[in-house]
Protein backbone atom coordinates (compact mmCIF):
# COMPACT_ATOMS: atom_id res chain seq x y z
CA UNK A 1 0.00 0.00 0.00
CA UNK A 2 1.36 3.43 -0.99
CA UNK A 3 1.91 5.81 1.84
CA UNK A 4 3.77 8.57 -0.02
CA UNK A 5 3.64 9.33 -3.67
CA UNK A 6 5.27 12.23 -5.48
CA UNK A 7 4.23 13.52 -8.88
CA UNK A 8 6.65 15.75 -10.77
CA UNK A 9 8.20 16.96 -7.54
CA UNK A 10 10.71 19.71 -8.28
CA UNK A 11 12.59 22.26 -6.23
CA UNK A 12 14.43 25.31 -7.51
CA UNK A 13 16.27 27.68 -5.19
CA UNK A 14 16.80 31.28 -6.28
CA UNK A 15 15.71 33.04 -9.42
CA UNK A 16 17.13 33.98 -12.78
CA UNK A 17 20.80 33.41 -13.31
CA UNK A 18 21.39 32.36 -9.74
CA UNK A 19 18.64 29.71 -9.80
CA UNK A 20 19.76 26.26 -8.72
CA UNK A 21 17.64 23.22 -9.40
CA UNK A 22 18.02 21.20 -6.22
CA UNK A 23 15.61 18.49 -7.33
CA UNK A 24 14.62 17.58 -10.84
CA UNK A 25 11.01 16.50 -11.46
CA UNK A 26 10.61 13.30 -9.52
CA UNK A 27 7.90 10.64 -9.48
CA UNK A 28 8.26 8.35 -6.53
CA UNK A 29 6.23 5.90 -4.53
CA UNK A 30 7.00 4.69 -1.02
CA UNK A 31 5.15 1.80 0.54
CA UNK A 32 3.96 1.49 4.09
CA UNK A 33 6.42 -0.31 6.37
CA UNK A 34 9.26 0.17 3.91
CA UNK A 35 12.76 1.16 5.04
CA UNK A 36 14.12 3.45 2.34
CA UNK A 37 17.64 4.84 2.38
CA UNK A 38 18.41 8.00 0.45
CA UNK A 39 22.04 8.28 -0.53
CA UNK A 40 24.05 10.75 -2.48
CA UNK A 41 26.91 13.17 -2.28
CA UNK A 42 26.76 16.46 -0.37
CA UNK A 43 24.55 18.96 -2.13
CA UNK A 44 23.00 16.33 -4.36
CA UNK A 45 19.49 17.13 -3.14
CA UNK A 46 18.76 14.26 -0.76
CA UNK A 47 17.90 16.46 2.20
CA UNK A 48 15.75 18.63 -0.07
CA UNK A 49 13.84 15.52 -1.08
CA UNK A 50 13.40 14.47 2.54
CA UNK A 51 12.24 17.94 3.63
CA UNK A 52 9.66 18.09 0.87
CA UNK A 53 8.40 14.61 1.63
CA UNK A 54 8.06 15.64 5.27
CA UNK A 55 6.08 18.82 4.60
CA UNK A 56 8.91 21.05 5.74
CA UNK A 57 9.75 22.74 2.44
CA UNK A 58 7.30 23.66 -0.29
CA UNK A 59 8.16 22.31 -3.74
CA UNK A 60 8.47 24.63 -6.73
CA UNK A 61 6.37 22.26 -8.76
CA UNK A 62 4.66 18.93 -8.28
CA UNK A 63 2.78 17.19 -5.53
CA UNK A 64 3.45 15.10 -2.44
CA UNK A 65 0.55 12.79 -1.76
CA UNK A 66 0.36 11.44 1.74
CA UNK A 67 -2.13 8.61 1.88
CA UNK A 68 -3.54 10.03 -1.35
CA UNK A 69 -3.85 13.65 -0.19
CA UNK A 70 -1.63 16.45 -1.49
CA UNK A 71 -0.09 17.89 1.64
CA UNK A 72 0.93 21.18 0.00
CA UNK A 73 -2.64 22.08 -0.84
CA UNK A 74 -3.30 22.17 2.89
CA UNK A 75 -3.31 25.38 4.91
CA UNK A 76 -0.34 25.91 7.17
CA UNK A 77 -2.29 25.04 10.33
CA UNK A 78 -3.48 21.75 8.82
CA UNK A 79 0.00 20.95 7.55
CA UNK A 80 1.38 21.50 11.06
CA UNK A 81 -1.16 18.99 12.37
CA UNK A 82 -0.12 16.49 9.67
CA UNK A 83 3.53 16.89 10.63
CA UNK A 84 2.61 16.42 14.25
CA UNK A 85 0.53 13.28 13.75
CA UNK A 86 1.84 11.54 10.66
CA UNK A 87 5.56 12.21 10.76
CA UNK A 88 8.41 11.70 13.16
CA UNK A 89 11.60 13.64 12.49
CA UNK A 90 15.10 12.72 13.53
CA UNK A 91 17.86 15.25 12.91
CA UNK A 92 21.61 14.88 12.69
CA UNK A 93 22.08 17.44 15.51
CA UNK A 94 19.27 15.97 17.60
CA UNK A 95 17.60 19.39 17.98
CA UNK A 96 16.35 18.76 21.47
CA UNK A 97 14.83 21.59 23.45
CA UNK A 98 17.45 22.43 26.06
CA UNK A 99 15.06 23.58 28.79
CA UNK A 100 12.98 20.42 28.74
CA UNK A 101 13.93 17.12 30.31
CA UNK A 102 14.40 14.00 28.19
CA UNK A 103 10.90 12.80 28.96
CA UNK A 104 9.38 16.22 28.27
CA UNK A 105 11.22 16.37 24.95
CA UNK A 106 9.77 12.99 24.05
CA UNK A 107 6.18 13.91 24.89
CA UNK A 108 6.46 17.36 23.26
CA UNK A 109 4.57 16.37 20.04
CA UNK A 110 1.75 15.01 22.24
CA UNK A 111 1.67 18.21 24.27
CA UNK A 112 1.50 20.25 21.08
CA UNK A 113 -1.43 18.07 20.03
CA UNK A 114 -3.18 18.50 23.40
CA UNK A 115 -3.31 14.72 23.58
CA UNK A 116 -3.52 12.74 26.77
CA UNK A 117 -0.12 11.22 27.34
CA UNK A 118 -0.14 7.46 27.12
CA UNK A 119 2.35 6.89 29.92
CA UNK A 120 2.62 3.17 29.31
CA UNK A 121 3.63 3.87 25.71
CA UNK A 122 6.17 6.50 26.74
CA UNK A 123 7.56 4.26 29.47
CA UNK A 124 7.77 1.48 26.90
CA UNK A 125 9.72 3.75 24.57
CA UNK A 126 12.04 4.90 27.36
CA UNK A 127 12.60 1.31 28.32
CA UNK A 128 13.04 0.19 24.73
CA UNK A 129 15.60 2.97 24.10
CA UNK A 130 17.35 2.53 27.44
CA UNK A 131 16.48 5.99 28.69
CA UNK A 132 14.43 5.15 31.77
CA UNK A 133 17.14 6.23 34.16
CA UNK A 134 17.80 9.41 32.19
CA UNK A 135 14.22 10.54 31.75
CA UNK A 136 14.55 13.54 34.10
CA UNK A 137 17.85 14.74 32.67
CA UNK A 138 18.04 17.83 30.51
CA UNK A 139 19.82 17.37 27.13
CA UNK A 140 23.05 18.97 28.31
CA UNK A 141 23.37 16.19 30.86
CA UNK A 142 23.13 13.44 28.22
CA UNK A 143 25.74 12.00 25.90
CA UNK A 144 25.43 12.35 22.11
CA UNK A 145 24.08 8.80 21.74
CA UNK A 146 21.56 9.34 24.51
CA UNK A 147 20.43 12.61 22.96
CA UNK A 148 19.90 10.91 19.61
CA UNK A 149 17.92 8.17 21.36
CA UNK A 150 15.75 10.86 22.94
CA UNK A 151 15.16 12.37 19.51
CA UNK A 152 14.21 8.90 18.20
CA UNK A 153 11.83 8.45 21.10
CA UNK A 154 10.35 11.88 20.33
CA UNK A 155 9.86 10.81 16.71
CA UNK A 156 8.08 7.64 17.86
CA UNK A 157 6.04 9.17 20.70
CA UNK A 158 2.88 9.89 18.72
CA UNK A 159 3.10 6.65 16.73
CA UNK A 160 3.65 8.34 13.35
CA UNK A 161 3.23 6.49 10.07
CA UNK A 162 6.48 7.80 8.67
CA UNK A 163 9.84 8.49 10.25
CA UNK A 164 12.14 10.86 8.42
CA UNK A 165 15.72 10.68 9.58
CA UNK A 166 18.31 13.07 8.20
CA UNK A 167 21.70 11.52 8.80
CA UNK A 168 20.80 10.41 12.30
CA UNK A 169 24.18 8.82 12.86
CA UNK A 170 26.21 11.66 11.35
CA UNK A 171 27.23 13.05 14.73
CA UNK A 172 27.76 9.72 16.41
CA UNK A 173 30.65 7.30 16.58
CA UNK A 174 30.37 4.02 14.67
CA UNK A 175 29.28 1.91 17.57
CA UNK A 176 26.67 4.34 18.86
CA UNK A 177 25.52 4.90 15.28
CA UNK A 178 24.99 1.19 14.79
CA UNK A 179 23.01 0.96 18.05
CA UNK A 180 20.78 3.81 16.91
CA UNK A 181 20.12 2.15 13.57
CA UNK A 182 19.29 -1.14 15.24
CA UNK A 183 16.85 0.68 17.44
CA UNK A 184 15.24 2.37 14.46
CA UNK A 185 14.87 -0.89 12.61
CA UNK A 186 13.38 -2.59 15.62
CA UNK A 187 11.04 0.30 16.12
CA UNK A 188 9.64 0.34 12.59
CA UNK A 189 9.18 -3.35 12.72
CA UNK A 190 7.44 -3.15 16.06
CA UNK A 191 5.13 -0.27 15.09
CA UNK A 192 4.85 -1.04 11.36
CA UNK A 193 6.26 2.31 10.34
CA UNK A 194 7.89 3.62 7.19
CA UNK A 195 11.43 4.90 7.54
CA UNK A 196 13.13 7.29 5.13
CA UNK A 197 16.73 7.71 6.08
CA UNK A 198 19.24 10.04 4.48
CA UNK A 199 22.80 8.86 4.81
CA UNK A 200 26.27 9.00 3.36
CA UNK A 201 27.14 5.70 4.91
CA UNK A 202 27.08 2.75 2.47
CA UNK A 203 26.82 0.23 5.30
CA UNK A 204 23.75 2.00 6.60
CA UNK A 205 22.22 2.08 3.15
CA UNK A 206 22.84 -1.60 2.77
CA UNK A 207 20.54 -2.28 5.71
CA UNK A 208 17.58 -0.66 3.88
CA UNK A 209 14.83 -2.47 1.98
CA UNK A 210 15.33 -0.07 -0.87
CA UNK A 211 17.77 2.68 -1.79
CA UNK A 212 17.09 5.97 -3.58
CA UNK A 213 20.12 7.43 -5.22
CA UNK A 214 20.23 11.21 -5.65
CA UNK A 215 22.73 12.88 -7.94
CA UNK A 216 22.55 16.50 -9.14
CA UNK A 217 18.92 16.58 -8.13
CA UNK A 218 17.98 13.49 -10.09
CA UNK A 219 16.48 10.67 -8.07
CA UNK A 220 17.02 7.13 -9.24
CA UNK A 221 15.13 4.30 -7.69
CA UNK A 222 17.43 1.60 -6.37
CA UNK A 223 15.08 -1.09 -7.67
CA UNK A 224 16.09 -0.04 -11.17
CA UNK A 225 19.79 -0.35 -10.42
CA UNK A 226 21.94 -2.93 -8.91
CA UNK A 227 22.57 -2.10 -5.34
CA UNK A 228 26.25 -2.63 -5.89
CA UNK A 229 26.25 -0.04 -8.67
CA UNK A 230 24.64 2.49 -6.48
CA UNK A 231 26.99 1.91 -3.64
CA UNK A 232 30.01 2.02 -5.87
Amino acid sequence: MDIIKTIGLKKVYGKGETAVCALQPTDLTILQGEFVAVVGTSGSGKSTLLHMLGGLDRPTHGQVLLEGQDIYTMREEKLAIVRRRKYGFIFQSFNLIPVLSAEENIVLPLLLDDKQIDHSHINGLLDFLGLTKRRKHVPSALSGGQQQRVSIARALANRPSIILADEPTGNLDNRTGKDVLDLLKMSIKKYNQTLLLVTHDTQVAAMADRVLYVEDGIVTDGRARACSDILS
Partner: peptide
Protein backbone atom coordinates in the same frame (compact mmCIF):
# COMPACT_ATOMS: atom_id res chain seq x y z
CA UNK B 1 12.52 22.06 15.26
CA UNK B 2 9.27 22.73 17.06
CA UNK B 3 7.58 23.62 13.81
CA UNK B 4 8.99 20.48 12.20
CA UNK B 5 7.53 18.52 15.09
CA UNK B 6 4.14 20.02 14.36
CA UNK B 7 3.98 23.30 16.24
CA UNK B 8 1.34 25.27 14.43
CA UNK B 9 1.65 29.01 13.79
Amino acid sequence: TLRALGLSN
